[in-house]
Design a binder for these strands. Structure first.
Length: 424
RNA sequence: GGAGAGGUGGGUGAGUGGCUGAAACCAACAGUUUGCUAAACUGUCGUACGGGUUAAACUGUACCGGGGGUUCGAAUCCCCCCCUCUCCGCCA
């Protein structure tokens, strides 16, 4: 959620930013917000005056009662009754305006960083870095959905039987590989100074709002209605919400958290030809890194996170590229996002395995996550997060790229974790 | 799930209808003293939204788990909900 005073004071800049992400309602919503904010302030001012007067009279009554002149108090009581009545009316009006203002603010996406390129969609993203050679596979090379059957390591049919489409069952070396990747990713992050967090995988409504999944993406989460809980789509949600309603001191910063979690996504309406096999799932595993930093440090932090994730991909010997997302492709919450994509040789496609974003104060504003600055005033922090990494597509690319006549070669970095060097 | 006891500022904890945004103590921060440290002393020390100001100062309102109610006036009384603790039940 954007800060109302930023919208008020830098209206043109905000609108220009929103237009860069092709947000067509930018002008309309910004104007609405400014008008609602003005009305809110006027109503509050009036109401505060009424209440101040009422408080004053109540104090007078107190004094009069003490001196025993009850009759005198009666006259004043009539006045306070009137004040109370008009204040009650104004209060409910004020409440409505505040509600409307908040709901309108929820509709406005973050303002992209100035370095975010204009663009309509994925085709306009800019490749800023590429590493590794694309594999040259023989023409009979199999896509991963065939390989997993050949080696019987991941079973979609079984998952379909017990749960539904998009809930695969990992077996034998397939299961072990999952465990190996999770541990590898966690150990790497901890070695870099990240604090390991094992969060709940369901969260309450307030947390959903805190990180921005609610209200805009309600349909993307599984909702447990009996207890009004949501299954998390990413560990970002519980971990970032650890810092909801928190005022940190400068010496607590930077915050570096890492957490593994199973992730659940309904992915309503997003199935198609490109999402076979492991490319898109309802349930998958991911290790997520979350950072909280001082505003002036956040872009250096973002770079550091990218380098870290790139290091993981290099350890796994996967060819990858780093994309700077354009205004049209960047997510609602984000000010600047880099995507990491690995190349899956048999599908001959790039697969997104990590999305690393700086949300600046957009999340912190909803979370009320602040720190005390030198003057002792609370100030919003910047939040960032990134996948490090999401497993299924890593596995997909690894299976495809490393297939040989003698089985699938496991990258060296994982040997200590898998206990085997090939899947055959 | 049942019964009981509670939920007050960073912490401990006082406050049971009127000048209480909240005592006291601790912690923290700043300063004085001191060769340094310690100790002592002095001061500061919640948040949000407004008004005000170049910025401050100053100032209004709201907030004592959340929501409603009673009252001229509520941290304090009443109702509902949530959470924590203890005991019982169930159970990985």
């Amino acid at each position: 959620m954007l800060q109302i005073n930023v919208i008020r004071e830098e209206k043109e800049k905000v609108i220009a930013g929103l237009l860069k992400r092709n947000f067509s309602e930018a002008v309309e919503l910004v104007d609405t917000v400014i008008a609602l904010d003005k009305s809110r302030r006027e109503k509050q001012l009036k109401n505060d005056e009424l209440l101040a007067e009422s408080n004053k009279l109540a104090r007078e009554i107190g004094n009069i009662m003490k001196s025993g002149k009850k009759e005198e108090a009666e006259g004043i009581k009539v006045k306070t009754a009137e004040l109370k009545k008009s204040s009650a009316m104004l209060s409910s009006e004020l409440e409505l305006v505040e509600e409307e203002l908040k709901n309108t603010l929820y509709l406005i996406p973050n303002v992209p960083h100035e370095s975010v390129p204009a663009g309509k969609g994925a085709d306009d993203n800019i490749t800023v870095f590429e590493n590794g050679n694309l594999p040259t596979l023989p023409s009979e090379a199999m896509p991963h959905w065939d390989l997993i059957k050949k080696y019987d390591i991941i079973d979609f049919d079984l998952g379909n039987k017990i749960s539904g489409a998009g809930f695969p069952v990992y077996k034998g070396k397939g299961a072990k590989l999952q465990r190996a990747l999770i541990n590898f990713f966690l150990d790497k992050a901890v070695a870099q100074g990240y604090l390991e967090i094992q969060p709940p995988i369901v969260v309450n409504e307030a947390s959903g709002y805190g990180t921005g999944q609610l209200p805009d993406k309600e349909g993307q989460m599984y909702h447990i209605q009996a207890d009004n809980l949501y299954m998390i789509p990413t560990a970002e949600v519980p971990i970032t919400n650890l810092y909801r309603d928190v005022i940190l001191s400068e010496q607590d910063l930077p915050i570096k958290n890492v957490g593994y979690s199973t992730c659940f996504r309904r992915e309503a309406g997003s199935w198609g030809a490109h999402v076979r096999g492991l490319n898109r799932l309802h349930q998958f595993d991911k290790v997520e890194i979350v950072r909280i930093s001082m505003p002036e440090d956040s872009y250096a932090t973002l770079d550091e996170m990218c380098k870290y994730v790139q290091g993981l991909l290099e350890d796994l010997e996967l060819p990858y590229r780093k994309l700077l997302l354009c205004g049209g492709d960047i997510s609602f919450n984000s000010a600047l996002t880099y995507d990491m994509e690995v190349y899956a040789g048999a599908q001959k496609r790039w697969l997104e395995v990590s999305s690393i974003s700086n949300f600046e104060t957009f999340q912190a504003n909803r979370l009320r996550l602040r720190y005390k600055n030198k003057e002792g005033k609370p100030q919003l922090l910047h939040t960032l997060n990134g996948s490090a990494l999401a497993l299924p597509r890593i596995v997909a690319a690894m299976l495809e790229n490393n297939q040989t006549e003698n089985g699938i070669i496991i990258p060296k970095a994982l040997w200590n974790y898998t206990g085997f060097k090939t899947i055959d």
